[in-house]
Amino acid sequence: MQSLASTTVDAVKLLLSGDADIWNIIGISFQISTIAILIAMVPAILIGFILAYYNFPGRRLLVSIFNTMLAVPAVVVGLTLYILLSRQGPLGEWRLLFTQTAMVLGQIALCFPILVAMSHSAFQSIEKRAWDTAKTLAANPFKAFFIVMREVRFALFGALLAGYGRIIAEVGASMMLGGNILHYTRNIPTAIALETSKGEFAQGIALGIILISLAFFLTIGLHYMQGKGTVVRD
């Protein structure tokens, strides 16, 4: 077994050489996770907003359900969707298993509760006065919603970053729903798992470097955004 240092050097060389397979895996990862977060973003933020500002029967139960879903392991989400999408499953006719669409569905299911819970808490963090004032100023409820959304934009951006960080690094659901097919459903986490099991540590570390770099830049972005948001408190 090579030393960690020499493996890391090989991994960097692999990345810099523009290895087609590596960059294809990275591309698939970003593509699937970006589509998933973009689809989940709008309804999740709306639900977070509704849970924060409207009182209706079952609201607390819904909040509890979303909070509970935060703790559900990716592999359980993968298993549930696998059962639904498998040939004998209720959605088997759609023939989505082992496709990128199935992976997107899995990642939506994973990031949705995070986005709902974090946007709910973001909207709750600002005063009721903000919503009332937005309603009194805006010509319609949509404009009022956008005024309030702008007020919590940094927290919402933080929710998006947290959701993105969760889905791009998860392996359980992607492996079960995508099947780890090269050039189609193999993404960074599934590729790392596969290459490591084969003893190909250089490729695994190369992909790991990409994930760590992503996590680093997401954190920097989050801190920058939070810094921007720290104006004088009410």
């Binding site: 903000a130 009332d132 004032t133 937005a134 009194t136 100023l137 010509a139 005024i147 702008r150 009410d234």
Partner: peptide, 26 residues
């Protein structure tokens, strides 16, 4: 009521941004 009614609290809520930006919302 639409645009025809406005209600302000004892201490009106100011949104994040400059005074000019707050006026833009109206």
């Amino acid at each position: 009521l639409g645009n025809d009614v406005m209600y302000f609290y004892q201490e009106p809520y100011m949104f994040d941004g400059t005074v000019r930006q707050n006026l833009t919302y109206a």
